[in-house]
């Protein structure tokens, strides 16, 4: 199945969901250890759409073999659309290969780096591509990626990327 089937880019790609997360306007990736990437296969449990960021909950098998729900920052509907996805076609139960940068403080979460779907389509978090300031570095003193987040990522949305328009 071709995820980029519908010609979203010719239709008006309308945004109607805004920040699903509070403080979406003032965050950075300071919460994440961009120098580490973890991977797993998993099943999409929930997508919480928002702009500039969404959150995705993926059930993966933890090291002990038990399923755990991993909550990750992800892209807005438009970010997915720009990579050829129809956000509505992403369903609960979809099996994916997932990679992510975990939380600095070690809690089970982070920001999604890539998601590969069964049909081979891959979504990549463009704001944390190599070369983005802050990607891959520890947040030591005034990280370039770090806007002072006002108390943290609001639900579902952590704006991020130095100077990159989220979408």
């Amino acid at each position: 199945m071709n995820r980029s089937g519908s010609l979203l880019l010719t239709a008006a790609a309308v945004a109607a969901v805004g920040a699903a997360s509070p403080a979406a306007a003032h965050h950075s990736f300071a919460m994440y250890d961009m120098s580490r990437t973890e991977s797993a296969s998993g099943t999409i449990k929930e997508f919480r759409w928002g702009a500039p960021h969404s959150a995705v909950i993926v059930t993966i098998l933890a090291a002990d073999g038990k399923p755990r729900d991993l909550a990750l920052l992800s892209g807005s509907p438009l970010a997915f659309s720009k990579q050829g996805f129809n956000p509505k076609s992403i369903k609960v139960g979809d099996k994916i290969q997932l990679s992510w940068h975990p939380n600095w403080n070690g809690s089970f979460g982070g920001v999604a780096a890539s998601m590969k779907f069964r049909d081979g389509a891959v979504y990549t978090e463009s704001e944390i591509a190599p070369g983005v300031p802050g990607a891959g570095g520890p947040p030591s003193g005034g990280p370039p990626s770090g806007g002072p987040p006002p108390g943290g990522p609001p639900p579902g949305g952590r704006p991020g990327g130095a100077g990159r328009p989220a979408d």
Binding site: T10, K82, P165
Partner: peptide
């Protein structure tokens, strides 16, 4: 990031003025 533009590249006719 100083000087990095906030440009967004659009495919197709997505961006409407």
């Amino acid at each position: 990031m100083l000087g990095r533009t906030n440009s967004v590249t659009w495919r197709g006719g997505l961006l409407k003025v």
